[in-house]
Amino acid sequence: MMAVASEQPASGVDLREPGGWRRTKNQIATVGMWIAFAVMLVPLGFVLVTVIAKGASAISWQFLTNSTIPVNVLPVTYGGVGPAVIGTLEITGFAALIAIPLGVLGGVYINEYGGNHVLARVINFMADVMTGVPSIIMGLFIFTIWVLHFGYSGLAGSFALACLMLPIVIRSTYEMLRLVPDSLREASYALGATKARVTVTVVLPAAIGGIVSGALLAVARAAGETAPLIFTIFVTQTLNSNLFSGANTALSTLIFQNATQPYTGAQDRAWGSALTLIAIAFILMIAARLVTARFSRYSQ
């Protein structure tokens, strides 16, 4: 809306922008909203810049792959955090292996089989609530249920992360399946397919872009988690590539441990690990975006 300049049209009608207090209030409000955005940008920028600056100097091929995590006193040039990298990849990977198929099946149940049944609505609602359960609870839970009986292991850590991921994958799968039009299901039924066939051969492929994207985001979230792990993997400093027995380590737990150390070496290792973790999460997030862009047929 362009404000007519201070000339009044000859008829005497005043079409100028409402002046005075109303306009100022509006401007303040708009500025306020932009400030809100800036306020959020500041810590984000601050943290990213710090992590990149301090982490980049620590990272090297040796850093990422050397299988000896040195004692805290030693500077970052000694050894590396290989065990932690492998730990993160293995533990998160196995958790994904458990949580993603179960989560997709759960979402399938709610949308395809649940209908209006009370049970389906309850499960849907509780899955939603479960996404808000703090991750530390998952760690404590697996501790009481598994670690007390079978000891610490990377596997226990995977279970804890899987508990975290499960409701996220269920919810995102459900949301994606909802978007698949019913006419596709009808066409498939009309050709004589059973319900399982319809779901597996038509509905899931139609929603696959969104489902994969949601799963990737869940993995990104799990990779960065610390609390579920500190109660389940009993952090060590040595490489343990056996997921199923013995304590293990991960990037997130390493950062947690080293953050409170007074030694620069330990702190540098923490920064380097932080940068690695952020990079992993970032790559997964980008991958999720790409999958959505290229493979999602039915989006909101």
Binding site: G106, V108, I123
Partner: peptide, 26 residues
């Protein structure tokens, strides 16, 4: 067909089972 339905239902029920187990065991 039935098997798939049971599988899907079990996966869904897992949510409730886990929540209850958390409360009970802890």
């Amino acid at each position: 067909d039935r098997g798939f339905q049971i599988l899907a239902l079990s996966a869904g029920l897992l949510v409730l089972v886990i929540l209850v187990l958390i409360a009970v065991s802890m």
